[in-house]
Amino acid sequence: MATFEKGILGGFSGKVGSVVGTRWRGKNVMRSLPQHGKYTPTDRQELQRAKFKTVISFLSPITTILSAYFGSSQGDKSRANLATSYHLKNAVVSTAQGMIMDYEKVLISKGDLRGLDGASATAATGRIVNLNWLDNSGQGKATTTDVLMAVVYAPDLGLFYSNTAIATRDATTASVTLPQFMEGFEVELWASFYKDGTNYAATSTYLGPLTVV
């Protein structure tokens, strides 16, 4: 693959002869057409493909949240791109059964806002999850009106539930009623704060697995 600033006619897109022109990360790029024939990927390439497939499959249902609250866009890299890169590097592991997500390292948001302190989550009858945290308003840019959000994932079902407006930081306690399909299943839970009407958020907190009752 080669990059160029000015070709004979400037940048171009599409196939010309034996090369293809396109834009990639803000640059004009030329690459040769793929060679047809038998190709056997290396073990390392197969491993990377499996990791990528696992991460993309896991993150896709919460792309809207990641696109709003995961860091800051960097050039051609969107927040969703940054989230994918982070999880590929830090939150997917290889096991004898295949690739799996390391839930303790999963992040639903990433930023400089003060996150949850002293947080806990407990299950109660009726598919209710009770959340508790400390009011750390005034620390850094944390304010009483910062909004609490949570994402819940049921691994056995491969399904998510999210709520992006649960309570404000100063409430220190809140309850979330999960959907009926999660009843009886173990779920993973993450929570975070963000400033309403902005993309400014905290780095999320993992609140551990719990069984929905």
Rank of each mutant, 00 (worst) to 15 (best):
I108N: 11
A91I: 07
L116D: 00
N90R: 00
L107Y: 08
A96R: 15
V93L: 08
K105L: 02
G115H: 12
K89F: 02
Y103T: 09
Q97F: 02
L116W: 15
L116E: 12
S109D: 03
D112K: 03
G118M: 04
K110Y: 13
Y103N: 09
V106S: 09
S109V: 14
S94E: 15
G118D: 14
R114D: 09
K110I: 13
N90G: 03
G111V: 06
V106W: 01
I108L: 12
G115A: 14
G98M: 11
D117L: 05
A91P: 07
V92Y: 03
A96M: 14
E104P: 07
G98Y: 00
D112H: 00
K110L: 12
G118H: 11
K110E: 13
A96P: 05
T95R: 09
D112F: 04
I108Q: 00
Q97V: 11
T95Q: 09
K105N: 08
S120Q: 13
K105Y: 04
G111K: 12
D102Y: 02
I108V: 15
D112W: 01
D102P: 01
V93R: 06
V106I: 15
A91E: 09
S120G: 03
Y103V: 00
L113P: 04
L116P: 01
A119I: 14
S120W: 10
G118N: 14
A119F: 02
S120T: 15
D112G: 02
R114W: 07
L116K: 06
L113S: 00
